[in-house]
């Protein structure tokens, strides 16, 4: 893994009125890393992710993403990241190919690149037969795989995945992780949230938010050792059960 930092934060904070959603979190994400971002509901994960994606201005602290400052270079950040969530990823009323072209355009690819990348994607996902059907009629598993491919169509420095595998069947869930590993081999850094604790094991490092604080940050092996437990499930439980904020 290289020493180059793709994300670097210093006491990053977000307040909504009196409420401190994210409280002085400091961490780095290295290039080529799979960085797991965990926490209980309401711990502040989404707020932190929105700041890192350039969608929400911090109240205090510093953060650089893909080399750009979250305060005044948000547009640059958006061009250099990919984003996919379980809730929103593709337009259901557009066809497979229309979605690919649309997102290619949004991410600023040139027409020639869009057409090349579209063909590559259709081939690698074996979607040739389905390219002209509406995304809403694709099975969920395929939809998620397509959504991930679209999120990295512009070869971003980092891709943010917000619970990408929720509700997906166990076989596709594993195929999805194969795609994540492939993206990492291609030099993309992965920032991922999940409720599946076995997936936490696939991350190089795990950070865990509790009540707006970054309560832990280490490799899964070190975290298990530190808490003297067998599984990430237990690590999560040890850290999160003391949480006061619920969702």
């Amino acid at each position: 893994m290289s020493k180059e930092l793709v994300i670097s934060t210093q006491k990053l904070t977000k307040k909504f009125g009196e409420f401190v959603a994210v409280n002085e979190i400091t961490f780095d994400v290295r290039k080529g890393e799979i960085f797991g971002f965990l926490g209980a509901n309401g711990a502040g994960k989404t707020t932190a992710m929105r700041m890192l994606c350039g969608l929400s201005k911090p109240s205090a602290g510093e953060a650089k993403v893909a080399g750009f400052n979250v305060y005044n270079q948000a547009e640059k950040i958006k061009q250099n990241i990919g984003y996919m969530s379980q809730k929103f990823s593709l337009y259901e009323d557009l066809t497979v190919i229309e979605n690919i072209r649309f997102f290619g355009g949004i991410y600023g690819l040139k027409p020639k690149e869009i057409s090349n990348r579209s063909n590559e994607l259709i081939n690698s996902l074996a979607l040739d037969q389905q390219k002209n059907i509406l995304v809403k009629s694709l099975p969920l598993g395929w939809k998620q795989k397509l959504a991930f491919s679209v999120a990295i169509i512009h070869n971003p420095k980092i891709v943010f995945l917000d619970e990408p595998t929720g509700g997906v069947d166990p076989v596709i869930r594993r195929q999805f992780w194969d795609m994540i590993y492939q993206a990492v081999d291609d030099g993309i850094t992965v920032f991922v949230t999940t409720h599946y604790m076995d997936e936490a094991e696939y991350c190089d490092r795990i950070s865990m938010m509790v009540d707006g604080d970054l309560a832990a940050l280490d490799s899964p092996a070190n975290l298990k050792q530190k808490f003297a437990v067998e599984s990430m499930d237990q690590v999560f439980y040890e850290l999160a059960r003391g949480a006061k904020r619920g969702d």
């Binding site: 209980a40 509901n41 929720g166 509700g167 409720h195 499930d233 999560f236 439980y237 969702d247």
Partner: peptide, 10 residues
């Protein structure tokens, strides 16, 4: 329990 964290699920 969909979308609910591990502690709340328990």
């Amino acid at each position: 329990t969909t979308g609910v964290d591990a502690v709340s699920r328990k």
